[in-house]
Structures are given as structure tokens and as C-alpha cells.
Amino acid sequence: MSEKKFDAEALARKPFGEQARNLADATKKAIRDGTSLLDLIMPNGKPMRDCTGHEMGEFGQMLLRESERKKKEEAATKK
């Protein structure tokens, strides 16, 4: 499996929500493909297996905020 080289600077320039969406999409793809989640490259450019608990907590918060934003957006479109 060939992996695209991670560009941490390019990711840092992306809007926060886009980073969360990219991480969520990568997680879904890894699960579908049977890839170990520990091999996922996180927004800080490190594989998940090399991230600290604090870093993982930050990523979790990022995903939660994006999820809340998406729920509000979907609720607004249903009205």
C-alpha cells in the first residue's frame, strides 16, 4: 500500500473543520479496508501509535466539535 507523504504545514493551513473531516474520512477508510487504526497518520503528522494520550484527546475534541457542527447544519436543512 503506498501512502501519500504527509505535509503537516499544509494541514495546519487548512481550516479546523476540514482537518476533522479528513481525519474522520481516513478513519472510515481504514476500517473499511481492514487497516490498523494505529497506522493512521494523525493531523500532527505522526502515526496514531506514536501519539501521546494528550494528543489523542485533542483529536477527539476536534472530531466532537466537527460532529456537533454537522448535526446543527443537518438540523437547519431539515427545517
Score class of each variant (00 low, 15 high):
Met1Gln: 07
Glu3Ser: 12
Lys4Gly: 00
Phe6Ala: 15
Phe6Tyr: 11
Phe6His: 11
Asp7Glu: 11
Asp7Lys: 09
Asp7His: 04
Ala8Ile: 12
Ala8Met: 08
Glu9Pro: 01
Glu9Ala: 14
Glu9Tyr: 07
Glu9Gly: 06
Ala10Phe: 00
Ala10Ile: 03
Leu11Cys: 05
Ala12Met: 09
Ala12Asp: 14
Arg13Ala: 15
Pro15His: 14
Pro15Ala: 15
Pro15Glu: 11
Gly17Trp: 13
Glu18Ser: 10
Gln19Trp: 03
Ala20Pro: 02
Ala20Asp: 07
Ala20Ser: 06
Ala20Cys: 05
Asn22Leu: 14
Leu23Pro: 01
Ala24His: 09
Ala24Leu: 15
Asp25Cys: 00
Asp25Trp: 00
Asp25Arg: 09
Ala26Ile: 05
Ala26Phe: 01
Thr27Ser: 10
Thr27Lys: 15
Thr27Tyr: 13
Lys28Ile: 15
Lys28Cys: 04
Lys28Ser: 11
Lys29Cys: 01
Ile31Lys: 10
Arg32Cys: 08
Arg32Gly: 02
Asp33Gln: 13
Gly34Pro: 07
Gly34Thr: 10
Gly34Glu: 02
Thr35His: 03
Thr35Ser: 13
Asp39Ile: 00
Asp39Gly: 04
Leu40His: 09
Ile41Gln: 09
Ile41Asn: 02
Met42Phe: 07
Met42Gln: 09
Met42Ile: 07
Met42Ser: 01
Pro43Glu: 05
Asn44Glu: 02
Asn44Trp: 04
Asn44Cys: 12
Gly45Ile: 11
Gly45Tyr: 04
Gly45Phe: 00
Lys46Ile: 02
Met48Gln: 11
Met48Ile: 02
Arg49Cys: 06
Arg49Ile: 07
Asp50His: 12
Asp50Asn: 11
Asp50Gly: 00
Cys51Ala: 05
Thr52Leu: 08
Gly53Asn: 13
His54Gln: 08
Glu58Ser: 00
Glu58Leu: 14
Phe59Gln: 08
Gly60Met: 08
Gln61Tyr: 05
Met62Arg: 15
Leu63Ala: 10
Leu63Asn: 00
Leu64Asp: 06
Glu66Asn: 09
Glu66Tyr: 13
Ser67Tyr: 13
Ser67Gly: 10
Glu68Gln: 12
Glu68Arg: 10
Arg69Cys: 03
Arg69Glu: 10
Lys70Trp: 04
Lys70Tyr: 07
Lys71Trp: 06
Lys71His: 08
Lys71Pro: 00
Lys72Trp: 02
Glu73Ile: 01
Glu73Val: 05
Glu73Arg: 14
Glu74Met: 14
Ala75Leu: 13
Ala76Met: 09
Ala76Gly: 00
Thr77Leu: 13
Thr77Glu: 12
